[in-house]
């Protein structure tokens, strides 16, 4: 096999292109999965027509529809900010994918500060949401943006702390190191701590994605998708649909990496090692996605004050305790 000599820039370009393809496709697939899984959880069929077989092309057709829609900017809107906001929301979501290891070698860039980067980049979209809400010159958008900011701040902390617990256990911030350290998935071992950390992370992730039951910021029945009320066409799907779906896929990847042992088998048993890491990652990833989809039709929306109370008075203390417990575990076990 001839060596193909590629410069670092060329390699980077290929990787970025792959990511740029995977994210929208993943968002479309995630959207379809959401339609169908949610429908069946609610004893419905969901879309059945587009594409012929069980409506597989539903989200594709949806996207196409949005492509054709008029791009409207309200008169009173701050035009520049309004136009930039979708990018500010969507690009950070893309950046999360850079450090998710699908297999030992299938990662765009194994950064030494992988988790730190993940959490830092993951929070940038909040700024985009605030931009969108403020520049829309719409009271619903503003309310939604402020709720969104408050919620993202409140739930970023439990996520950061639960990720810190994992980093303490692994003794590294690199995602590859973290995965390699997990002989058993972290959610199983160390007992108790791992599981609780996983639950805290999942809860925080659902809130970060502003999905049900934490969808106060985009509550369609009261503030009409909040910050994205004024958006139409492609800007709308990039800022809302793709961002939410991309977020979901990204958080599922992070969850798999940090808590479910990433590309490694569920238990350290040599016959299972034969199965390629991509398959293991895919299985765990599907499990995480299903968990997110499962939560959505099950629970009703949480009230704004309950949502804040739950984060500050319960999740954050719990994750602080987890950090303490993990410290003790690292020191004495």
């Amino acid at each position: 096999m001839p060596e193909i000599a590629l410069t670092a820039w060329q390699i980077l370009l290929v990787k970025v292109l792959v990511i740029l393809t995977i994210v929208p496709v993943g968002a479309l697939a995630g959207g379809y999965a959401e339609h169908k899984v949610m429908a069946h959880l609610q004893h419905r069929l969901g879309p059945m027509y587009p594409g012929g077989f069980h409506g597989w092309a539903t989200t594709l057709a949806d996207g196409l529809k949005f492509l054709y829609k008029e791009d409207i900017v309200p008169d009173a809107a701050d035009r520049k900010v309004f136009s930039l906001a979708p990018a500010a929301i969507f690009v950070p979501v893309l950046m999360i994918y850079l450090v998710i290891p699908i297999d030992r070698n299938l990662i765009v860039e194994d950064l030494d500060v992988g988790i730190f980067y993940l959490l830092a980049v993951g929070s940038i979209s909040t700024i985009g949401v605030l931009m969108a809400g403020w520049s829309s010159a719409n009271k619903y958008a503003l309310i939604g943006a402020l709720r969104s900011a408050a919620q993202l701040i409140a739930y970023e902390l439990p996520i950061v702390l639960s990720a810190a617990v994992v980093a303490m256990y692994a003794g590294s911030l690199s995602v590859i190191d973290i995965v390699e350290k997990q002989n058993f998935p972290f959610a199983i071992w160390p007992p108790g701590i791992g599981l609780i950390a996983f639950l805290v992370f999942t809860t925080g992730a659902v809130a970060e994605m502003t999905r049900v039951p934490f969808d106060m910021p985009v509550a369609e029945s009261e503030i009409i998708t909040g910050p994205f009320t004024e958006y139409t066409g492609m800007r709308y799907i990039f800022s809302h649909m793709f961002a939410e779906m991309g977020h979901m896929v990204a958080f599922a990847g992070i969850g798999v990496t940090l808590f479910l042992g990433g590309y490694k088998p569920i238990i350290p048993w040599s016959p299972l090692e034969v199965v390629p890491g991509v398959i293991w990652f895919g299985l765990k990833f599907a499990l995480m996605i299903f968990l997110f989809l499962w939560i959505r039709p099950t629970f009703p929306r949480v009230r704004e004050d309950q949502l804040q109370k739950f984060a500050w008075k319960f999740l954050i203390p719990v994750s602080l305790v987890l950090v303490l417990a993990m410290g003790a575990w690292v020191l004495y076990v």
Partner: peptide, 19 residues
């Protein structure tokens, strides 16, 4: 209660669909 709710929806996932 949350788990009970999740069990309910999961049950419906596997029920025969009557639509």
């Amino acid at each position: 209660g949350l788990l009970k709710g999740m069990a309910v929806t999961l049950k419906h996932l596997f029920k025969h669909n009557t639509v």
